[in-house]
């Protein structure tokens, strides 16, 4: 294994733990704000209000990016533990990572759309 590669996996190892701890904080905040009452999480007004608040936008988009990063890295870590062909490993990780990038875009688009839509009215 080359030095660059082992360094890369060391960073990935650290980042998996750091992003995990950050995600615990994000998740706790998410549950406390959105799922405290049924209305808080399931009403249109409160959802739009949150998504047009800059602090919540930062919170959600950070959550989105970190969540997908941690998930895809975790998926790769699991597959790496099994004896599967290289093309299958990189094919599967590629598909999941590509879908994750698209869904991060979808999430950003949802926030931006709700933001502009709210301010146009």
């Amino acid at each position: 294994m080359s030095n660059a590669r082992s360094k890369w996996s060391t960073y990935a190892w650290y980042w998996q733990r750091i992003s995990g701890v950050l995600l615990v904080v994000f998740t706790l905040g998410h549950y406390l704000t959105v799922h405290w009452t049924e209305a808080a999480g399931h009403s249109f007004q409160s959802s739009v209000q949150r998504l047009t608040n800059p602090m919540f936008q930062f919170w959600y988009l950070g959550f989105l990016v970190l969540g997908f990063y941690h998930g895809v890295q975790g998926f790769y870590n699991i597959l790496r533990d099994y004896k599967i062909p290289r093309w299958l490993l990189w094919g599967a990780v590629g598909i999941v990572a590509g879908a994750a990038v698209y869904f991060v875009y979808l999430g950003f688009d949802t926030v931006v759309s709700v933001h502009t839509w709210k301010h146009m009215r």
Partner: peptide, 8 residues
């Protein structure tokens, strides 16, 4: 993320 698209 897909479900929240309905907000749009």
């Amino acid at each position: 993320v897909w479900a929240l698209r309905s907000l749009v």
